[in-house]
Simulated scan of single mutants.
Amino acid sequence: MADNTDRLLRDYFSGILKLMKEINPQCKQNIADITFCLSVIKPEHKQAITKYYSDKFITWDEVCNESGKSNSSLRTWRNDFKRLLHVIMQHGDEFIKLRREALQA
């Protein structure tokens, strides 16, 4: 069963979040957070995550076969990405503030 982060990522890659951002301002922040997280991970990880969440009918096994990586590696990449996204979504503003303070010091 998918969790809220999985649903959010599916909505992001399907374009639903872009459509909803006019109705729900939180969607705009979610888009920014996901885009940021995708920009800081390795391209190989980004490709696997994008492949999986862009197509709701694809399985991890199919993504593994296409990438030539093990199932456990890809699941680790996905879990690490979801963990990073969760931290950014919960504490992103705090990180921005700390970064600004560090740059001013």
Rank of each mutant, 00 (worst) to 15 (best):
Y12Q: 08
N65A: 10
N79M: 04
C37F: 00
F57L: 13
L9E: 01
K69L: 08
E94P: 03
E62K: 10
S54I: 03
K56E: 14
G68W: 02
M89D: 10
R83G: 01
I23L: 11
L84D: 06
L38V: 07
P43E: 11
K82R: 12
D3C: 02
T59L: 07
Y53K: 05
F95D: 00
D80M: 10
R78L: 07
R7K: 12
V40T: 11
Q47Y: 02
T35D: 13
V87L: 05
S72Y: 04
P25C: 10
A102Q: 09
M89V: 00
L19F: 02
E44D: 07
Q104R: 14
Y12K: 04
K51D: 14
N79D: 12
I23R: 14
E62S: 07
A105C: 12
T35P: 09
Q29K: 15
F57N: 14
G92K: 14
I88S: 09
R10F: 11
R100Q: 13
V40H: 04
M89F: 00
N79Q: 14
K97I: 07
R99D: 05
D61G: 09
I96G: 01
N24D: 14
D80Y: 02
D11V: 01
K56Q: 11
K56W: 03
F36G: 11
T76D: 10
S72E: 11
F57P: 00
D61S: 10
A102D: 08
K42I: 06
I96N: 04
T50A: 12
D55I: 08
